[in-house]
């Protein structure tokens, strides 16, 4: 691949690249214009990203600083989302928590993409015993109620953020392995793979240069869709007291802490982190749908 690119005239290559880049941009703009909901999701994603990256630097209060005098205050101009039972500013806590929740989701999705992608492609492309092993492993995981399985994994491995990431990755494994398997399987005997065999590519090279790039778009869409689910799963584990420990700001714990105060009318402690959670999941799901439209070559006419 590199040989061709380095030996090609630089102008031709760069103009070719520029053309395809502008084409992709145009296509993205077209998709968002056709489907404004994807545009909203993308805007929301940018907001989440800003919160995750520079959140701790822009919040008005320290998320851990308690002020007992201002405990359990409803939303006001000083405290946009109100304060909790220790007088901590909920707005600051919700914004700061973005980074941790997103990080758990991103790392677990990256991990499951690597595990499930490799296993699934190998199963679909080579078949035989690899297919059997991967398939039965996925079936075994699917046989458990997934959230309970995640609880069990975290309880067994130890109560840390890393183990939440691992548990979330494991329960998503069957999904990725099956998609990658199906996509690799239908391309295994396609014309271009046969052609690649004829041009002297080894089976390993075919997987890397022919199969993988072609199923990447589908996997990326799947990653976006699972992101929301991963966030929800991490928050769920924290909610029941596994994984992240207080006083670390995390949406799941915050909802858990606030749940006890809803009966006494202090709704805001649980409401705002819950709303953040919902918006994040909503955003990734819509983004996945939008991405599917962008990467689907059938739609690109």
């Amino acid at each position: 691949m590199s040989a061709l690119e380095t030996e090609a005239e630089p102008t031709a290559t760069s103009s070719g690249f520029m053309r395809s880049a502008t084409a992709t941009l145009q296509h993205a703009r077209y998709t968002f214009a056709e489907n404004p909901v994807s545009g909203i999701a993308f805007a929301l994603f940018v907001v989440l990203l800003i919160c995750a990256v520079i959140g701790p630097a822009i919040v008005p209060y320290s998320p851990l600083a308690s002020d007992t005098a201002a405990a359990l205050k409803p939303p006001s101009l000083q405290h946009w989302f109100g304060t909790d039972q220790l007088g901590r500013d909920m707005f600051s806590r919700v914004v700061v928590a973005t980074r941790l929740d997103m990080a758990i989701a991103v790392f677990s999705v990256a991990l499951v993409f690597a595990m499930g992608g490799v296993a699934g492609i190998a199963a679909g492309f080579f078949g035989g015993w690899i297919d059997q092993v991967v398939g039965r492993t996925a079936d075994t995981i699917m046989a458990f109620p997934l959230f309970v399985l995640a609880m069990g994994i975290v309880a067994a491995l130890g109560n840390t953020v890393t183990n939440i990431v691992i548990a979330t990755a494991i329960i998503n494994f069957p999904l990725y392995a099956r998609i990658a398997r199906a996509e690799a399987n239908i391309r295994r005997d396609s014309g271009f793979v046969q052609a690649a065999r004829l041009t002297g590519n080894s089976e390993m090279r075919i997987v890397l240069t022919q199969i993988l790039p072609n199923i990447m778009p589908i996997m990326v869409v799947q990653m976006s869709l699972t992101m929301g689910y991963a966030i929800l799963n991490a928050a769920g584990l924290s909610f029941i007291g596994l994984g992240v420990k207080p006083p670390t700001p995390e949406w799941g714990i915050m909802v858990a802490e606030g749940a006890g105060f809803i009966v006494s009318g202090d709704w805001w402690i649980a409401f705002f982190p819950g709303a953040a959670l919902m918006l994040a999941v909503f955003c990734f799901n819509l983004l996945g749908d939008g991405l599917r439209d962008i990467v689907d070559p059938q739609r690109r006419t």
């Binding site: 691949m1 690649a196 002297g200 790039p213 070559p297």
Partner: peptide
Amino acid sequence: DSLNPRYTAARAIADPIL
């Protein structure tokens, strides 16, 4: 079907040479 949708024409023709 016999052309990789992610390869340009030049890349496809160059494959056996490479």
